[in-house]
């Protein structure tokens, strides 16, 4: 009887010892190690963010942090994306990383009330600011240049690069025309009021 108890108690003693060790370790040794890991558990490295911001000041920090976070912190991938697409995806609204106070973009919160993600406008995003002709000089949408006429008829090319360029131009024209129209509308409304 006592023999049997003896044999049982050795493994249970070992278990108890292991359990105690773990408990002590849990209470006394893990605390410091859980509080020290990275300050921002799933955030991007602030230095990386800064680096991208200096390269592309027109892109919002929030977008950059979001993109870095999604691609595992690769500056190269984020840069590539900005260069290829002229901008980054807008992060979801729920994504509000801590942004240094000095760095908050001045465009934030332009309109009261609704939730406003800090979206970059299309002119900035597609890099069209240089192509906005002065509004007064071109009152109607761009019928002036011959190349635009040409693009109406030729839309498909068998050359891959040409196709890409044509698509790009159609996108740009669409945005620029929309902007011109809106500006014209605003002017008319202003004219009516005064």
């Amino acid at each position: 009887m006592s023999d049997q108890q003896q044999t049982l108690s050795i493994p249970s003693l070992l278990l108890l010892a292991a359990f105690t060790a773990l408990t002590i370790r849990y209470f006394f040794f893990t605390k410091p190690s859980t509080t020290t890991p990275r300050a921002n558990p799933r955030g991007a490295n602030p230095a990386d963010v800064e680096q991208v911001v200096t390269m592309f000041p027109q892109i919002g920090r929030r977008e950059i942090i979001w993109d870095l976070q999604r691609n595992g912190g690769s500056i190269a991938a984020t840069t590539e994306r900005i260069l290829a697409r002229g901008g980054l995806d807008a992060p979801p609204l729920s994504f509000q990383p801590p942004i240094p106070a000095s760095a908050t973009p001045s465009t934030a919160g332009t309109s009261p009330g609704q939730m406003k993600p800090a979206h970059v406008d299309l002119i900035t995003r597609y890099n069209l600011s240089s192509k906005i002709s002065s509004p007064l000089s071109t009152p109607s949408d761009g019928t002036g240049t011959g190349s635009q006429r040409g693009s109406q008829t030729q839309t498909w090319s068998n050359n891959k690069n040409e196709r890409q360029a044509l698509l790009q131009r159609r996108r740009e024209e669409m945005i620029l025309n929309a902007r011109k129209k809106l500006e014209e509308k605003e002017r008319q409304q202003l004219g009516q009021r005064t």
Partner: peptide
Amino acid sequence: IEAAKMWRDRREEFERVVREGVRRSLGVS
């Protein structure tokens, strides 16, 4: 849900928010 509520109950405000978004996205302010 928010947009749906606004569209249903406060149509004018909904339309104003959308129009403002359009202007902002085209860089006209």
